Simulated assay, not measured.
Amino acid sequence: MCLSSGGYQELSEASPRQAAGEAVDPIALEPVDEVRVTTLVDNVYDALLIGDDRTSRTSFGVARAAAAQFEGGSTAVGLVAEHGFSALVTVRRGSTTTTLLFDTGMSPTAMVTNAERLGLDLSGIQGVVLSHGHFDHAGGLAGLVGKKGARSLPMVVHPEIWTRRRLAVPGLEPEEMPTLSKRALDGEGFTVIERRQPSLLVEGCVLITGEVDRTTEFERGAPPIHQAWSGQEWRHDPLIVDDQALVVHVRGRGLVVVTGCGHAGVINIVRHAQRLTRVPSLHALLGGMHLNGPAFEPIIDDTALELVAMAPDLVVAGHCTGWRAQHALAAALPAAWTAGSSGSTFHLTAA
C-alpha cells in the first residue's frame, strides 16, 4: 500500500532501530547460475517497451478476446496493470530449477489473468513469499486458490503480517485496509511458515530477509496516517515490521534483491542483505521502492546517491516508486535503470 499524506518532519519522528530476534549472521547463500524475474503485476503495462539481451517484453496480441465490433469477432488484448505487485522468481543452480511466487497483486484476478495470457502455469510454483500484509500484495491469493497444487504450497510470511491496519487521513473518515486471515489461508491448505528471522529456501539458494535492520538516517518509515491496531487502540505504525525481501546470489555477479514495497527502505534492505550474506556487490534491484508522495519524495536524492555508490547493473523500480523517483533514478543510473511493466522478464546469468 502506498502512502502519500503526511510531512517529512512527522515521518522523521520514527527513529531507526535494530530488528528484533536473534541475529543470523552470516548466512551461506548458495550462488546460482541463473535467475529470471517475471513481473506478473505492476502499476504499469506498456506494450511498446523494447527488450534487450536481458529483458523480454510483452507486446499487444498476447491473447485475444471476443469483440463483435471487429471483423472476425475478436480483438487483441494485453495484460492487466493495477496498483499492486507480483513476480515469478525462477532460479537455476546446475540442473535444478525452482520457481517461487513473490507477492500476488491487489485484485483476485489480475495475477492469474496475466499468467494465463503469458502462458505461465502457476500450478508449477513451489512456494509463495509475501513481502508484507498490505492488500495490494496479497489480494491475488484468492485467484491462486483452486489451482493445481496450491493446497500444499508452503507460504513464507513475517508473523506481523496479520496486523490490522488503517489509513487515518486528517479530515477524512479513517479507512481500514483488508486484513489477511491466517485461518482462511490454513483452511485453503497453504502451509504458512511464520519467520521474523531470515529464511533460506530452495536448498539454500534463495534468502528471505525476515525483519530488516533499520540503519540509514533517512529511511524512517510511514507517516502518522498509517496506523495499526494494538489490541486496544489505533497507533502510528511507521515501521511496518513485516516488510521483507527476496534475495538471490548470482554467481560472479552479486546479489539480486526483489522488494514488494520496500517499506523498510530499499537502502536498508540492500545493506541488510549484504550484511547477512557477506556478498558486497549488488547486481540487481527490482520491485517497489516506496518513494512516492510528499512523505517520501524528500528522500529520493539520498536514495539515489546510495544506489549510485552501490553500482548495480540493473534497477527496475516499479509499483509504488513514483514518477519523480523514476526520473531521478533514471538520471542517476542511466546504464542500470530499466522501465518496469506487467509481463516483463529480467534474465540474469552467472559471469
Rank of each mutant, 00 (worst) to 15 (best):
E13I: 07
E13V: 00
P16N: 10
Q18E: 15
G21Y: 04
E22L: 01
D33R: 07
V35T: 04
R54K: 06
S59N: 15
F60Y: 09
G61P: 08
V62R: 05
A67L: 14
S74N: 11
A76E: 15
A76R: 12
E82K: 04
G84V: 01
L88D: 02
T98S: 09
T99V: 06
G105Y: 01
M106F: 08
M106N: 14
T113K: 05
N114L: 00
L120A: 04
L130E: 08
G133V: 06
F135W: 07
L141W: 06
G143E: 02
G146A: 07
K147M: 12
E160K: 05
W162T: 00
A168V: 03
L172E: 15
K182V: 07
D186Q: 10
T191L: 05
L200W: 00
L200D: 05
L201E: 12
V202A: 15
T209P: 08
T215W: 06
I225T: 08
Q227D: 13
A228M: 10
S230L: 02
G231N: 13
L239I: 06
V257S: 08
G262T: 08
N268P: 06
A273Q: 07
V279Y: 00
L286T: 00
G287T: 03
G293L: 04
T303Q: 02
L307F: 03
G318P: 10
C320K: 11
T321F: 01
A330T: 09
L333T: 02
A335G: 11
S342D: 11
G343N: 02
S344N: 15
T345R: 10
T345E: 13
F346T: 07
H347Y: 07
H347F: 01
